[in-house]
Amino acid sequence: MTEKVHLRAPIKIYDGGWVDVELVVTDSNLVIGKRSIPLREIEDLEDVEIEGVNCIQIKKEDKIILQLPKNLHQQVFKFIAFNLKADKFAVFFLSSATVGGVVSSNAQWEKGYFSVTDEGFWFLSAKYQKRIPIENLGSVKTDLRNVGGKQRKVLVLSHVEKSNVVTSLVLCPESTLEMLEGYLQRLFEKHKPAINLSDNEMEILTLIYSGLDFASVENIVGVSTDELNNYYDRLVDAGLAKVVKIRKEIELTPRGVSMVDKISKR
């Protein structure tokens, strides 16, 4: 029996450089050039930027990067997202309920799927296909929320999106909710960084998240520059932060001092 072909298009695949191939999307396979990949064997999917171009990266043992014509990118991404190797649950979801500490006034409940892979979870609906890597999950719990005028038990997920802490809500039958909570808790524990933070370190992490600069953090926590540098190193080593800028501390040479002397007499 031949499979239904949904799409056939010339695309490029990245292999150190771009190579022209044909992509064929069928009910259950992606055929990229001569390689056929069953959709149910795709472990992960992500939008990535390669050489300034928005691409689709799929993971099946290795990673495959596809550059599609702009008008097909979203269509193919959505199709793979709905069909990759994952456990999919019919739910209502609200993502994002809050962003960076402020309630999203324009967010609405969506009817769709909550899909869980080994690498993370997805909110899937006709409008949204949002992937949250498991390392971006901050907490998972159930709570009562007012949904459509009724108090309902929902799954509350806090996760990171574009450097913001975001909360998303999932509503589904209670038995599914409890199963999802347990599963995500276990996944979260497995990926949790193995580090115990001191009070100072927790405060520093919070301040950095809030967007404070080095001097403000130093001032609020009440530590010296060297001490704060050591804390920063530890947070970076633990994978909780990354270095984005190295500042220079300089002092004036005698010539510099003499220049300041001249400036002050002007």
Binding site: T98, V99, G100, G101, V102, N164, V165, S210, G211
Partner: peptide
Amino acid sequence: GYIIKPFQAPKVIEE
């Protein structure tokens, strides 16, 4: 209005 911890400076200011 309300802000939820942890928050980011620009969001707090905006609110």
